[in-house]
Design a protein around this nucleic acid. Structure first.
Lengths: 229, 229
DNA sequence: AAGAATTGTGACAGACGCGTGACAGTCAGT
DNA sequence: ACTGACTGTCACGCGTCTGTCACAATTCTT
C-alpha cells in the first residue's frame, strides 16, 4: 500500500517525464507507457493501482481506452485520472462518464496532481466494489447513471446527478456554496454562487414526488445539508 | 484566516495597481514588490499566505525566483500563482515545474484572478476534522450545524449559533459585551453593546425547554458566563 | 427607601438571505 | 436549421433574522 504502482499513459515525452518525476518524488512507482498498446501490455503484465490517462493519444483515444478498461472485469476497479489540455466542461462530463475517477486539466501544478492521486487512492480503499450508493431511501448508481427512490425512477440532468451524488456520499454535513462549487463543479469553473440555489431547487423538485420532504435542508447563512431532517 | 496576506511581484506599475486594487477589494492585504529583491525583503519580514508572481521581471526572472522559493524550507509551502502574457504551452509546463500552483495569462479578468486566488487559498486551508462540541449536556456540531440537548433538537439562527458555539468552547469564564462583539461578531463591525443582551435572551429562550435553567449567567457590571450554575 | 445603574423584555423596521419563475445561450440529436 | 434538453443568470417577492429602541424589572448605592 505504501508504494502504489501508477501507470502513466501519455504520449508527449516532456509531460511524461514531468509526471514520472513527480510520481516518483511522492514514493510511488511510475510505469511509463506512450500509447494505448504499450499501456495494455503493462496492464497484462501486472495490474497497476492507478492509471493516469492522457485525453489525447495517438490512435485510440484516452476515452475509448477508459471505456475498454471499464468493460474488462480485471481492470474495472482500477481508478483512472484523466489528463487533458482542454478546459471544456463537456469534456469533463464525458471523461467522467467514461469511467474516470477524477479529472485534471493541463496545465496542472505538481502538488495538485499529487493531491488528487492521494485522494483517489484513499477514496478507493473503502469504496471498492461499491457500485450502488444508498442514502435516505435513495439509490444512485454512478456507473449506470440511474437514480431511484421508493421503486420509482428519477430523472436527473448531469449537474443534478453529480450534485445528488456528492450529497449522498457526504450526508449530514453542511456545505457552503463555495465548497459545493469546488466539489461538484470544479475549482477552475467560474459560476455565480446563486446558481447553486437554482440547481438545489431543481434537485428538490425532481426528488419531491418520490421521497420524504426536506431531504436537502437549507442552513441559513451557511449552505445546504443532505440528511433525513 | 479572514484576511490573508498576498505578495504581489510585478514590475509594471499599472498592472501592479490593478492587482492591488482587486486584491484589496476582496478583503486581502496586498503587499507590493516591483522586483525580486524587494519581494525577498518582504518575505524575510513576514511570510505571505500567497504569492502572485509575474513571469517577466527585470533581472531575475519569475521562474528562477519560484525555484528559489521552492528550495527554501521556509517558503516551500507558500502557494504561487504565475502571471504571464505568453500563451506558449511550454512556458506553462516550465512554470508549473518551477512549483507554481496555478497559472494565469494576461489579459485576465479580475473575477478570474480572484477565483483562482480563492481556489488556491482554499486548497491550502487545512481540512477541519473538528466535529462535536459538548458542554453542559448540550451537543453542538460545527460541521453539520446542528444543536441538541437531552435528545431534543434545538433550532438557532446564525448569530445565536455562533454565540452558543463560542460560549461552549469558552465555558466558565466571564466575557464582557465588548469581548463578545469582537469574538462572535468580529472586531470590524459596529453594533450597540446592548444588542448582545437581546441575543442572549433569544439564546436563553431557545435553550430553555430542553435544558437546565440558567446556563448563561449574567455577571452584573461585567458581562455573561456560560457554565452549570 | 429612594434614586441610580444595570439588565430583561417586547415590539418593530429594515436588511438580508433564500425560493422561485422566467429567459437566453449552448449543445446534441433529428 | 429546427427542435428539445440542459445550464447559468437575473429580477422579484417573501420570510426570517437582526439591530435598535422604549420601557419594565432588577440590583446596587446612598
Amino acid at each position: 500500500m505504501t508504494s502504489a504502482n501508477i501507470l502513466l499513459v501519455e504520449d508527449e515525452p516532456a509531460i511524461q517525464e514531468l509526471l514520472a518525476f513527480n510520481v516518483a518524488q511522492c514514493g510511488y512507482r511510475a510505469i511509463q507507457a506512450f500509447d494505448v498498446a504499450s499501456a495494455q501490455t503493462e496492464i497484462n503484465r501486472a495490474l497497476p493501482d492507478l492509471i493516469l490517462l492522457d485525453w489525447m493519444l495517438p490512435g485510440v483515444s484516452g476515452v475509448e481506452f477508459a471505456q475498454r478498461l471499464r468493460a474488462d472485469s480485471r481492470t474495472r476497479d482500477i481508478p483512472i485520472i484523466m489528463l487533458t489540455a482542454r478546459t471544456d466542461e463537456r469534456d469533463k462530463i464525458q471523461g467522467l462518464e467514461a469511467g474516470a475517477d477524477d479529472y485534471i486539466t493541463k496545465p496542472f501544478s505538481p502538488r495538485e496532481l499529487m493531491a488528487r492521486i492521494r485522494a483517489v487512492l484513499r477514496r478507493r480503499a473503502p469504496q471498492m466494489t461499491d457500485d450502488l450508493v444508498c442514502a435516505e431511501g435513495i439509490e444512485l448508481s454512478p456507473t449506470t447513471h440511474r437514480v431511484s427512490a421508493k421503486g420509482m425512477s428519477i430523472e436527473l440532468g448531469p449537474t443534478e446527478f453529480r450534485l445528488l451524488h456528492f450529497f449522498m456520499t457526504h450526508a449530514e454535513r453542511v456545505y457552503s456554496r463555495t465548497q459545493l462549487l469546488d466539489q461538484v463543479w470544479g475549482d477552475h469553473v467560474f459560476v455565480e454562487e446563486r446558481t447553486i440555489d437554482v440547481h438545489i431547487r431543481r434537485l428538490r423538485q425532481a426528488l419531491e414526488p418520490s421521497s420524504t420532504d426536506n431531504l436537502i435542508q437549507t442552513v441559513r447563512g451557511s449552505g445546504y445539508r443532505f440528511s433525513k431532517e
